[in-house]
Design a protein around this nucleic acid. Structure first.
Length: 491
RNA sequence: CGGGGUGUAGCGUAGCCUGGUAUCGCGCCACAUUUGGGAUGUGGAGGUCGUAGGUUCGAAUCCUGCCACCCCGACCA
């Protein structure tokens, strides 16, 4: 376990890679750019899915599934969309292999070339809107509120586990509406769902905002986002929600008849979050000891480690441990009793710390005699002896406390790392030395945005929602500006 | 895709310069003693040295191509 060899403060990238590996979350696969999500990591993703899926259902959405393959012609129908994704599409050209007569090797059968090539979906707007054309005739068919859980492929040149891989898992919501107002409302509503999920489940504070035209989704009129700040001072886009206007409806000729018997194009939204959230989770809370998981997301919320000794006390210890185990389980807590006698308690302590288990209960002969137990919390590493009376409530309360503490800690860090600056010198200095978000006036032009990016690598992460109007001058160009926007270096 | 680096047992490594089929630690297996913060002893198993060629009597070692990963760029919803 040489996770501790690399300190978070010394080499954040290496620390992250080690953590993903040693906490058993994921590993590189034999396929370039693609990862294997291991059972422990996948269990966390499943919990995220469950929490999100519940929220989607509560807001009226239903799940469906669309094809992995998209005909190239569909893909090219929306001009800005294809522009945005063309450079990272995997393309299927053939449908058969054969054994080469000479070399006896398996080769692509040149006679099995597809008439029309298929794109492996980088996102599904095109296939979905092509389908919606058949589903929508009248205003009575609207709205359509569909979500799909799927994998997508974006051929990246440089990958990082969870943060950027060629294939990743996500959900994509695709909705169709009769009016622009309703679609915009949907876009904003789902942004709120994401923000609620990020803050209350992941315990990661996020800033809700809107992207600049330059950072907008290819094919959208507006892209809303939630932006998080990682422990190394870099920002991470954690989710996006797009108001697509009528772009896809026009590209795929999706019209509906109004009450007044008029033909109108349908209004669209799409929104998604991905396994990238795993990266956000790791980079928001974890430390040199390993992963730190918020209780609401932890596959194991409480682990019970019996301290076994030579002699007859063991039976009593195990019996007590089981008693606690069943009491906690009955209360709906995800609890594990680790009664392996092949590892020492110290080993287990370290292992569960590495895996981020929020609460550890240790119980030995002394505790049994005293009717007590030792409770250790992962977030603060505090240990305390606790009387067994009312154990379930105490643990429930503690889990709640840990959840809140993690959020508060991350929020404090972020608050300290949003810096308002008024000069270009200050801008560069904060970005370089203090890191985090820089709040600065911007003249609103893409030209300035790109120049700033070129000179500092910082991008405009978002224009926060409900951003106060404030007259000022652009930190770069000196031109007049009406508001501050958030810049940061980002993943 | 460009520049740099790395690749030797599950993990981390020595050996490479100066060619003669491999070192050590952790982990793994067995037994014993242990167990309140990563136990100890003894014995044991495990390696086509990333991969494909080349040079050579002989290649982990020298040469070339390829692959993967890491760092820096470019690119990137």
């Amino acid at each position: 376990m040489d996770i501790k060899k690399v300190k978070r403060s010394e080499d954040y990238s290496a620390w992250y890679n080690n953590l993903v590996k040693y906490a058993d979350l994921a590993e590189h696969s034999a396929v370039k750019g693609c990862m294997v999500i291991k059972p422990y990591g996948y269990a966390i993703w499943e919990t995220m899915q469950a929490e999100l899926d519940r929220r989607f259902k509560e807001t009226g959405h239903v799940n469906a599934y669309f094809p992995l393959f998209i005909p190239k012609s569909f893909f090219s129908k929306e001009a800005s969309h294809v522009d945005g994704f063309a450079k990272e599409c995997a393309v299927v050209t053939h449908y058969r292999l054969k054994v080469d007569e000479d070399s006896r090797e398996i080769v692509v059968d040149p006679e099995a070339r597809l008439e029309e090539e298929l794109i492996v979906r980088p996102t599904s707007e095109t296939i979905i809107w092509n389908t919606y054309r058949d589903w929508i005739q009248s205003y009575r068919d609207l709205p359509i509120l569909v979500n799909q859980w799927a994998n997508v492929v974006r051929w990246e040149m440089r990958t990082r586990l969870f943060l950027r891989t060629a294939e990743f898992l996500w959900q994509e919501g695709h909705t169709a509406h009769a009016t622009a107002e309703e679609a915009i409302e949907e876009t904003r509503k789902m942004l709120d769902v994401y923000a609620d999920f990020a803050e209350n489940v992941l315990a990661v504070p996020v800033i809700k905002g809107v992207k600049t035209p330059n950072e907008r989704f290819a094919g959208a009129l507006d892209t809303y986002c939630i932006e998080g700040l990682m422990q190394d001072g870099k920002a991470l886009q954690m989710g996006t929600s797009h108001f697509l206007g009528q772009n896809f409806a026009k590209a795929f000729d999706v019209k509906y008849v109004t009450r007044e018997n008029k033909q109108e194009y349908v209004w669209a939204t799409s929104w998604g979050v991905s396994t990238r959230l795993m990266g956000a989770l790791i980079m928001s809370h974890s430390d040199d000891e390993g992963l730190v998981l918020p209780p609401r997301l932890a596959p194991i919320q409480v682990v019970i480690v019996p301290i076994l000794k030579k002699g007859d006390a063991n039976e009593a210890v195990l019996k007590k441990a089981e008693e606690y185990f069943f009491a906690l389980k009955k209360a709906g807590i995800r609890v594990k009793l680790d009664d392996r006698d092949t590892q020492s308690p110290g080993f287990k302590f370290a292992e569960y710390e590495l895996k981020g288990v929020p609460v550890r209960i240790a119980i030995g002969p002394r505790d049994v005699q005293n009717g007590a137990l030792e409770v250790a919390r992962r977030d603060t590493k505090e240990k305390q002896s606790m009387a067994e009376t009312d154990l379930v409530h105490k643990i429930e309360h503690l889990l709640e406390q840990i959840q809140n503490n993690l959020f508060q800690r991350a929020l404090d860090y972020r608050s300290e790392h949003i810096t308002a600056v008024n000069s270009w010198e200050e801008f560069k200095d904060v970005l370089e030395n203090k890191t985090g978000f820089v709040s600065a006036h911007w003249d609103g032009s893409t030209e300035t945005e790109l120049k700033i990016k070129e000179e500092t690598k910082a991008t405009i992460r978002c224009i926060p929602l409900n951003n106060p109007e404030e007259a000022g001058t652009c930190v770069y160009s000196g031109k007049p500006s009406t508001q501050r926007v958030l810049f940061a270096k980002a993943y």
